[in-house]
Amino acid sequence: MLRKDLGLATLVVTVGFVVALINPRFLSPVNLANTANLIGLFGLFSIAEAFVIVTAGIELSVGSVIALLGVLFIDMIANGVPWPVAALIVLALGAVIGLLHGWLITRLRLQPFVVTLCGLLIYRGTARFYTADGTAGFKFGSSFPTLEWLVTGRTWGVPHSAVAFLFVAVLAWFVLHRTVFGRHLFAVGKNEEAARYSGINTRRVIVSAYVICAVLTAVSAIFFAMYTRSVQPSSHGNFYELYGIAAAVLGGFSLRGGEGSIVGVCLGVILLQELQNLVNLLGIPSSLNFAVMGSVILFGVIADTQFDRYRTAKRHAATRASLGKPR
């Protein structure tokens, strides 16, 4: 764990402690399970976002993809497509979207911001058109026990979305921090030219990042669709990409690429959900929701840079002391 992560973990614990002190309901099993569920749901696509950010890219279409794929998933099932097939189709579509973004960025040399901004508009527009600006939902009384258990069920009180998140997080941590591919992701994000000279197939690495991101987003789309059970494309998943970016930035990812840790982004997700909870439990007007979130992110980022400066100053002082001759 990086030192940065340690600082963030402290913040997570402190905020949790304060909320629990003011309102003990924070620690009630019901609230904890609910929060865990939300952490799982939001965590999946935040990790997805991190994979793209580490390559110095950005993925702005996360929320729209969640809406579009959610609509398609529910509609397919409602029309009698067996759910495993529907799930596979949704994941495949996710892969296609990722490939498309990656191709546009690496082959046509378009900027990630532009490509995914267009994606954001296109996918949401398509989803709204598809439902005729209505809602996609199941017929009254229909149920899919296996799917529902898998995606929205609980084991010993732990929501499966949280389990899935944990599983994905461990996998992502391993890939990003322990494998050659992960090192290549960082390298490409930090200095693409040097990466090429090092024999890294930079195009393939970048495309892979977008595919991983989009497939993970597709997984998250399924979880969200089953969580809400009906999808209204005009609002479903709005701003989720910004949420994912915020979690990643809190977790130490630099938008310039080549920096960040999976532990950090997970802590970032937890912190953001904690804040959401804080707003709810402390009776803060929910209209202030975004303002609270924004302030804490700003605070976190400032604290982080200040902490860095403090450490450098300390090292500096130590070297000076070793010279045995203070100024």
Binding site: V180, N191, A194, A195, S198, I200, G258
Partner: peptide, 23 residues
Amino acid sequence: AQGLFLEFSISDNISMPSLARMS
């Protein structure tokens, strides 16, 4: 521009092209 990842550690820089062999 072409040889180094300046912010990466010296060790990460040296091993970058040889990772296939070190894994």
